[in-house]
């Protein structure tokens, strides 16, 4: 059952799968564990249909969003100066945090301080997720 769920999850855009790809099947499994027999079959069918509809909605959402902003080029004429500057500031801050935690992790590994390395690795993951969310918020091209 989980396998079918994971297959249907592939219908979603990659960014969506990156964000929820591990979490959704786990939640599905937890909810399925509460049911038996026909109730389980009905639940699974509803979930699969929900996934197909959700995937369609996710693609429509993606196509409806504004064209991606490329921060390596000049500000497009239809984008306000304020929002362009705040997009730039937030992306730079988020990228700095990623670089900082990556450097800290590399230094810890070279010192064989694996406790510190693990902590930095968690912070690095959080910083990358934040960067991805900031990019998404401003529709910035990767």
């Amino acid at each position: 059952m989980r396998r079918v769920y994971e297959l249907l999850l592939r219908l979603y855009p990659a960014a969506y799968r990156e964000l929820f790809g591990e979490e959704m099947p786990r939640v599905f499994e937890q909810a399925a564990a509460e049911r038996r027999g026909m109730a389980l079959a009905r639940f699974a069918a509803g979930e699969w249909m929900g996934l197909a509809a959700g995937a369609a909605a996710a693609w429509i959402d993606r196509w409806k969003t504004d064209p991606a902003l490329d921060l390596t080029k000049m500000r497009p004429v239809d984008v306000t100066r304020e929002s362009y500057v705040s997009a730039l500031d937030e992306v730079i801050e988020a990228q700095k945090a990623v670089d900082f935690h990556l450097r800290r992790m590399q230094a810890a590994i070279s010192r064989h301080d694996f406790v510190e390395a693990r902590l930095s690795s968690d912070q690095d993951r959080r910083a990358r997720e934040n960067l991805r969310l900031v990019r998404r918020k401003y529709h910035i091209a990767e």
Binding site: E23, G46, A53, G54
Partner: peptide, 30 residues
């Protein structure tokens, strides 16, 4: 809610900045 509906709504709420996602300190299943 189906998981499809739940996570679709969560994705929009995250994008709008109305909710945020974080890692729980206690390492339970979730």
């Amino acid at each position: 809610l189906s998981t499809g509906t739940l996570y679709g709504a969560l994705a929009r709420l995250l994008e709008d900045g109305w909710i945020e996602r974080f890692e729980q300190e206690d390492t339970s299943r979730e």
